[in-house]
Design a protein around this nucleic acid. Structure first.
Lengths: 167, 167
DNA sequence: TAATATTGTGGGTAATTGTGGGTAACATTC
DNA sequence: GAATGTTACCCACAATTACCCACAATATTA
């Protein structure tokens, strides 16, 4: 069985690599809880993701959307942690608990779960942000608040990061 | 411009995630003590489980629900522990004593035993959590308490874990 | 520029899922 | 034995989800 995909041109490669996302887009959720995955992101997905994402709670009231293969790497590492340690148990539960596997349909939409929509406080309009190995879905208002709220930014950590990443 | 790839079927994806559970769902127990196994979990179960689970006491007042084949691996490992050591004897007794074998019916429900329902303090509404190789059934209130109780959780270790696993 | 394809959004319909209950078979107790 | 409780196996049905098709707006191509 075979399937045909658009070729990723040189122009696209310059901007993106597989399963790597950036940029911000505006979309809307319909009455059934569906959101479109931006076409630019879909084109960048490796085909072994099989149109599948894992959606889960993100930090600061947004939804994180992982391509399947990225999530599989994460769970693989989680599986190596022994469940005997309370710390490990807690960590495993925390990261897997709110996750849910979804596929996008013929129109390129995924269906969000009610708990996650509630968690992120989503209404009709949402912002979708590419965040390297995952996407983030935000209520625009929440995003504005987080942007303008610097109280939880640690200057020292930022400095460490800047040194580490070499900006 | 187009290029053609072999199709990765849903079946193939399921295999990579067989007997692996995550996500949290709300369900209710009926008057006969039956709970639904979330459909998403049923789809991921390998056939050799024969619709069979082992339910037993979990840590912290919840019920653990193991697919048959996962439980078999556990007992195999338990069997290798020498029963001479008092510690091992206690551990083996603790994990096998409250276990009971159940099958899910045509509607996908298992029947919980009264002792386990009492142990977990379950009323009508329950939360079912996918915890990798097993499910957990909780009274929502108990779950909230455990969540907010961080006394035995080491924040530093959690941070280390998060870095290691790379979310 | 016109023609064509892609993308974002909405909605209809069939299938699945979650939940409740009925009843017959079976076991348990007096 | 009868009375009682428990379990297995049905059926029913509302709510949700999966799977279509439609179509306007935008982008791409000739």
């Amino acid at each position: 069985m075979w399937v045909t995909f658009p070729i990723i041109t040189g122009e696209m490669v310059k901007q993106t690599t597989q399963n790597s996302f950036f940029g911000q887009y505006s979309y809307s959720i319909d009455t059934k809880g569906r959101v479109n995955i931006p076409a630019k992101f879909r084109q960048v997905l490796s085909n072994d993701n099989n149109k599948t994402f894992i959606i889960t709670r993100g930090e600061e009231r947004c939804i994180w959307v992982y391509p399947l293969v990225v999530w599989q790497e994460i769970t693989e590492r989680l599986g190596k942690l022994s469940a005997v340690s309370p710390n490990n148990r807690h960590f495993i539960r925390k990261t897997t608990r709110y996750a849910s596997l979804v596929e996008y349909d013929k129109q390129g939409r995924i269906m969000l779960t009610k708990p996650l929509i509630d968690y992120a406080g989503l209404n009709k309009d949402v912002h979708i942000i590419g965040a390297l190995n995952k996407l983030e879905i935000w209520n625009p208002e929440t995003l504005d608040e987080v942007d303008s709220d610097d109280t939880n930014i640690d200057a020292v950590t930022l400095h460490e990061l800047a040194k580490e990443i070499i900006l």
